[in-house]
Amino acid sequence: MGVIKGRKAVASLMFYVLVICLCAIFLSPFLVMLTTSLKTNSDAFTIPVKLLPRKLVLDNYPAALRTIPYFKYLMNTVQITLFSVLGQLLVTPMVAYSLSKIKWKGASVISGLLMATMMIPYTVTMIPLYRTYSQLHLTNTYIPLILPAFFGKAYYILIVRQFFHGLPNSILEAARIDGANEFQRYSRIALPLCKPALTTVAIFAFLDAWSDYLAPLIYISKPNRLTLSLGLQQFMNEYSVKWAELMAAAVLFVTPVIVFFLIFQRNFVQGVAVTGLKA
């Protein structure tokens, strides 16, 4: 009996060692980011390399805010992000409602097309869209970055549709008998009920817009219109990269995302799991 207990204890100890090692590996880039941002630049380039700063400095943060017009870029990014999230929140539940709660032939057709659009590589649509926007003189504006959000995105629609599938039809049916029309049933019953799914959509839309790199890279070139993700890139343009400063800028860029993630972790998990399993 004692032997079995001992073996179990060893096994669980080994499991903990494994988990701690894995966590250390996955955290190490975050640690490097943070500790480098607290080093002087010469400290970062001194051998032997130490993980922790020899002398703790905070100078990199104000310096990073000066090297690129950080607040300008922040405001630009916030602007794009807000409008993108707004657009997705407006359109996604409507389309999802049509696909899940209205009985019409188009619903299954559109559901199939939704999956198909997810497979279209961005590189295929990028050139004609770029041409159209530049003919309309809309490059260097945020229209090309924001406009698509107001027409729904397949991934988000699938998340909310899945949620609607789980709502019993009887609630809507009762409202129909009471004389509510389709729009009333949608806005007064379905929409308030799908708040959890909409939270998930909002989070994903926020992350997508905040992190977007390729679309701003294509459409935005005017220095005062750049976004934060393009701004980070500017640190690389110098002949010798000031890594301590760059890491400070990266910490500032990543922190809101991490905070968001920690607050809404449950929504993240559900959103990913739902689309991955049932789609």
């Binding site: 359109v91 409507m94 389309v95 409602y97 049509s98 696909l99 209205i102 009985k103 019409w104 188009g106 619903a107 559109i110 107001f150 027409f151 729904g152 629609i157 389709e182 949608y186």
Partner: peptide
């Protein structure tokens, strides 16, 4: 109704 609700996406 279905068409109208799905119109933005279409």
């Amino acid at each position: 109704n279905g068409l109208l609700f799905a119109l933005p996406w279409i």
